[in-house]
């Protein structure tokens, strides 16, 4: 992949924008279309583009597979953890109204946190699956 100069320059320009757009979709999901699933997939796609253009070895140096694997579980744990916290605070499971003094602010916080959990898990799973496919040698 050393000779694809145009590809590399364009990818270098695009990848930060894709990742930034993913974060925008993630945290603006309350107000516009989007949310954790979409943001996670876009983030994963941006990272996969990086791996395609600059090689899987470079990409695994940036996001080491053990770290990504931890993130796969981390997102789900964050999501279910928010549910447990709302249980401990005297509400029902995944009832975010008890997370803050004001129910509306509690809902905001809860939704932000669980969307973050969704985004982390989705992005990490996409990258993991890509690494798993790309890391295999021809059978």
């Amino acid at each position: 992949m050393k000779h694809h100069l145009v590809l590399r320059v364009v990818a270098k320009l695009l990848i930060p924008l894709i990742l930034l757009f993913a974060l925008y979709v993630q945290f603006h999901g309350d107000y516009g279309p989007g949310g954790g699933f979409q943001a996670g997939v876009i983030f994963g796609a941006g990272f996969i583009l990086y791996a395609l253009v600059f090689g899987v070895d470079t990409a695994t140096a940036v996001a080491r597979p053990p770290v990504v694997r931890v993130c796969v579980a981390l997102g789900l744990l964050l999501f279910s953890g928010v549910g447990v916290v709302s249980l401990l605070l005297g509400g029902r499971y995944l009832d975010y109204s008890v997370l803050a003094d004001d129910p509306v602010r509690g809902q905001h916080l809860g939704i932000l946190l669980i969307e973050l959990g969704v985004g982390i898990t989705v992005a990490a799973v996409m990258v993991t699956i890509f690494f798993a496919f790309a890391g295999r040698e021809r059978a």
């Binding site: 279309p33 949310g35 499971y93 995944l94 905001h108 809860g110 669980i114 969307e115 959990g117």
Partner: peptide, 24 residues
């Protein structure tokens, strides 16, 4: 109840939180 303008997000994350947890 949620103060969130995007109803899709509020249904997905709050009213139907269990379903979303299952999807994740």
């Amino acid at each position: 109840e949620t103060g969130i303008p995007n109803i899709v997000t509020s249904v997905l994350a709050s009213y139907r939180g269990y379903d979303t947890l299952g999807e994740v």
